[in-house]
Design a protein around this nucleic acid. Structure first.
Lengths: 117, 117
DNA sequence: CGTTCAATTCGATAAATGTCAAACTGTAAA
DNA sequence: TTTACAGTTTGACATTTATCGAATTGAACG
């Protein structure tokens, strides 16, 4: 038992790890920022990776690696559009993170915080 | 300029890093959980480190190290009470994290997401 | 005082991380 | 088809991390 919740804990830890590097966090924020512009109807959607490269003081291979980590943590998704790669926010995961800090922990009363075997 | 915001970004990244290890995340959740019990008046307050040691499958030195990391990231504070160490949730930092995922990013429109020099 | 229990400090070590330069792939456009 | 641009892959390297066992400190209690 308590498999589901342990899975969730690991998923959360993985997401936090992906956000634990300042450059990666900035990329994630950029993607969130672009999304809100899309919501306002000013943009067709998504955020180009090239943009991220030009806004951070790190090389293209590093940005590529960071983006992959964000995808791997289910925080974003990426899609090719012609010559460009477009990043999209993964809204369910964003909501999961939001809920995590919203009120009581999702883990209490699940056995996850009880004594070990 | 944008020093304040860059500092905040780094502070956030540091907090996420502290929460990026499953065992450390579990310790943090335990502390949050104990706090709510205190709020209900059933406990004098705080969470003993011994408890964390007995609930995780890692040794005392490792738990000690993890607790130090949480303190270093300003997520919790620790106080000696006789033979025991008691952990307390750092509420301001908890709120900062909550606000981070609450609605629009605190970073948009600050210059942090603009083109680099 | 000596013992016991809680927790920390001190190496050590294997694994993961962030970054880069160089070479490569894929798409568009001349 | 050649060129140019966007992004990835590969391989390398220095740094950080998670964990442990052994030794240590600190408080309480007989």
């Amino acid at each position: 038992m308590c498999d589901v919740t342990m899975a969730k804990l690991k998923r959360m830890a993985k997401a936090f790890k992906a956000l634990s590097n300042p450059n990666r966090l900035q990329i994630y924020l950029e993607i969130i920022d672009q999304r809100s512009k899309r919501v306002e109807g000013q943009l067709e959607g998504g955020c180009g990776i090239a943009e991220c490269i030009s806004k951070l003081n790190i090389g293209a291979p590093t940005v590529s690696h960071h983006v992959k980590e964000l995808v791997n943590a289910d925080l974003i998704s990426v899609e090719r559009n012609g010559k460009f790669m477009i990043c999209y926010l993964n809204e369910p995961m964003y909501n999961e993170l939001k809920e995590f800090f919203d009120g009581k922990s999702l883990f209490s009363g699940t056995g996850l915080l009880s004594a070990k075997s």
